[in-house]
Design a binder for these strands. Structure first.
Length: 282
DNA sequence: AATTAGCCCTGATTGC
DNA sequence: TGCAATCAGGGCTAAT
């Protein structure tokens, strides 16, 4: 499940292969992968052909290229999206969109088994002195953003009666955190996922955000978390942060802090793993 | 307005 | 053995 560190690995991997190059052709092989582009697949293609990609940015789990027409080519990996650099013939399983460039260098393909991810073209606007795609205005700054304000975000979290995990996953409050790094952050902060955010001292919420930033920084340094071939870098290589995970995927195994057996619990229609001893339910 | 449940999707795994 | 149910879950929409 690509979250902020995995998306950042992909962004950095794509940069040298895409920025400064002009698009020659775009092939949409699956309509669902451009469903966010309201005007349809042919409009998507027409807006991109002949455009030069100027730079690639990211906020939370979204990334986008700025084109020489000052539009944004937005990408979200969803659950299983990948970008692969391909030279010559390519026909990968679950290949959804292919982009070729005017020079003779390799193109890129968007591969996505479950098609939760996708691409679209959108206008760029300036919000709060940051340039970003219009359709991503509701996405809050992530902990890697220079202007991320953990004190303000902690106070915003403190106002919610939802569970602290639901708030941590709310991309309108803080972006980039998904189920893996939410469980990791809560384990480090010794908080139970179900505790209402407004019942937690704001100082502890601030600490939780610091843990989130730390664990994602460490995951990025390790090249991200890979469980299987569903998350890989543009060259097909996997990250190795999985071996460093303390909570996610460790149900039934001893807590690395106290030795108690970790438990898996239902959280909405997904799951949470916590230590029943050092992440006590209030 | 705030919060939560449900939907989309495919393939590996589990259960009968 | 074979088929069906289950699980994974981000982001959006609908319902409460």
């Amino acid at each position: 499940m690509p979250e902020l560190p995995e998306v950042e690995v992909v962004r950095q991997g794509l940069q040298p292969w895409t920025v400064g190059r002009r698009i020659q052709s775009v092939t949409v092989q699956h309509p669902r992968s451009v469903r966010r582009h309201q005007a349809g697949a042919s409009d998507f293609t027409q807006r991109l052909i002949g455009r030069r990609l100027e730079r690639i940015d990211r906020r939370g789990k979204f990334m986008w290229w700025q084109t020489d027409q000052d539009e944004a080519l937005i990408a979200h990996l969803g659950m299983s999206g990948q970008f692969r650099v391909v030279g010559g013939e390519h026909n990968a399983r679950h290949e959804r969109i292919a982009i070729e460039f005017e020079d003779a260098q390799p193109g890129i393909v968007f591969v996505d088994q479950r098609t939760f991810g996708g691409l679209c073209v959108d206008e760029l606007i300036t919000v709060d002195s940051s340039q970003m795609p219009s359709s991503l205005q509701h996405i809050a700054r992530d902990p890697f953003d220079d202007r991320f304000d953990p004190i303000a975000v902690a106070h915003r979290m403190k106002q919610s009666r939802s569970s602290v995990k639901a708030v941590l996953l709310d991309q309108r409050i803080v972006s980039g955190v998904g189920n893996i790094y939410a469980d990791e952050s809560l384990w480090r902060a010794q908080l139970c996922w179900s505790t209402p955010a407004n019942r937690i001292r704001v100082e502890r919420l601030h600490e939780l955000l610091d843990h989130a930033s730390d664990v994602m920084t460490q995951a990025l340094a390790a090249g991200g978390t890979s469980f299987d071939e569903l998350y890989v870098n543009v060259n097909g290589s996997s990250g190795y942060f999985e071996r460093s995970l303390d909570a996610y995927g460790r149900a039934g195994r001893p807590c690395r802090r106290c030795g108690e057996l970790m438990v898996k619990e239902q959280f909405g229609n997904r799951s949470s793993v916590r230590c029943p001893n050092c992440q006590r339910r209030r």
